[in-house]
Write a protein that binds this DNA or RNA. Structure first.
Length: 268
DNA sequence: AGACCCCACCCGTTTACCTCA
DNA sequence: GATGAGGTAAACGGGTGGGGT
C-alpha cells in the first residue's frame, strides 16, 4: 500500500499543524498509512511547497508557529504563499515540524478534487440539488446506516464521509434551533410565572390590609385563602373543608382559569 | 469478565466562503 | 472597488458508548 502519511521531523522549534486543533497528537485513521521519519530544512519545505506537496493550510501553521500556536486563540492564520516564504526564510534552518497525512505526500483520489493548486483543501459548497436531496433524506431519517450513506453519496457524487459530515452538521443545526425554541418557551413561562407571582403578592397585601380594617370578619391566613380567577376574588378555607357537597373546586395544572363550582354566593 | 477494536455519533473548533456595511 | 466584520456551513479531531470478538 502506498504510504500516505509522513512524519517530518527536524531539530529546533516545534509547531503543530492547525488542523490538529492545537491539541497535539498526530493520529492516523487509516491502517494502511505508515509513518516515515525524515529530516527537513527550510529549503526542503520551500521546495516541497513549490512542488505542491505541502498543504499551505499546514504552512499557515508554520507561519504562525511561534506566535499563534502557543495559545488557543482563533486568530486567522495567514496562508498567503509569499508571506509563508518570507517566514520560512526567517525561520531557523532546523526546526521540528509535524506534518499530518495530507501535508507532504500525494493525496488519494478522493481528496484530489478538494485541493487547490497549492494543495489547500478546497471548501466544497454543495449545489442546490445536492442540498435538496440531502434535506429530503434528512426529513425521512436523521441518521444514516452505511448502505444509505453509500447510496446517497453515489447518487450525489460525494464521498460517504461528506454525506456523514453533512448529516452530523445538520443534526447539530436542528438541535441548536430546538434549543432556541425551548429557551423561548421557558422565557415566556418565566414571564408568566413572574406576573402571577406579582399578582398574588398584591392580593396578599390587599388581604392583609382588609384584615386590619375588619379584624373580626377576616381571620384567615393567606395560606388558607383561595381565589376565584373568574372574578379575581378570594374566599376562605371553608371551601376546602368540603363538608358541603355544594362546594367543589375544579382545578388542574395548565388551566388558565380554574373554575369553582357551587361556591356560596355570599363569598362573592 | 474485561480487554480490545471498530463504528457511529456528538461536541467543540477551525476554516473557506459569502454577504454586507 | 477594496476591505474588514460577521455569519454560515463544510470539515476536522477528540471523546464516548455500543456491539462484536
Amino acid at each position: 500500500m502506498m504510504c500516505n502519511t509522513r512524519l517530518s521531523l527536524s531539530l529546533g522549534l516545534s509547531s503543530t499543524p492547525p488542523h490538529q486543533n492545537n491539541k497535539g497528537k498526530l493520529s492516523t485513521n487509516d491502517d494502511n498509512q505508515e509513518l516515515t521519519l525524515c529530516l527537513s530544512t527550510s529549503s526542503e519545505f520551500t521546495n516541497n511547497y513549490d512542488n505542491n506537496r505541502i498543504n499551505p493550510q499546514l504552512l499557515g501553521g508554520v507561519n504562525s508557529s511561534v506566535s499563534s500556536f502557543s495559545n488557543t486563540s482563533s486568530v486567522k492564520r495567514e496562508r498567503d504563499a509569499s508571506s509563508f516564504e518570507e517566514e520560512v526564510e526567517n525561520l531557523e534552518t532546523k526546526r521540528v515540524l509535524l506534518i499530518s497525512p495530507k501535508g507532504l505526500v500525494d493525496h488519494n483520489d478522493d481528496d484530489e478534487e478538494d485541493v487547490h493548486d497549492y494543495g489547500t483543501r478546497k471548501k466544497l459548497r454543495l449545489t442546490k440539488e445536492q442540498s435538496d436531496v440531502l434535506e429530503d433524506s434528512f426529513k425521512e431519517h436523521t441518521t444514516l446506516n452505511s448502505k444509505q450513506k453509500r447510496d446517497l453519496a453515489r447518487r450525489l457524487s460525494l464521498r460517504p464521509r461528506q454525506v456523514e459530515v453533512w448529516f452530523q452538521n445538520r443534526r447539530a443545526r436542528t438541535k441548536l434551533k430546538q434549543t432556541e425554541v425551548d429557551c423561548e418557551i421557558l422565557r415566556k413561562r418565566y414571564e408568566d410565572l413572574k406576573d402571577e407571582n406579582r399578582r398574588l403578592n398584591k392580593e396578599i397585601q390587599e388581604l392583609k390590609s382588609l384584615k386590619k380594617s375588619q379584624p373580626f370578619r377576616v381571620q384567615l391566613s393567606a395560606a388558607t385563602l383561595s381565589m376565584c380567577p373568574s372574578c379575581e376574588r378570594t374566599y376562605g378555607g371553608a371551601a376546602h373543608a368540603a363538608t358541603d357537597n355544594s362546594t367543589k373546586i375544579s382545578f388542574s395544572i395548565g388551566d388558565q382559569k380554574p373554575h369553582f363550582y357551587g361556591i356560596p354566593s355570599q363569598i362573592h
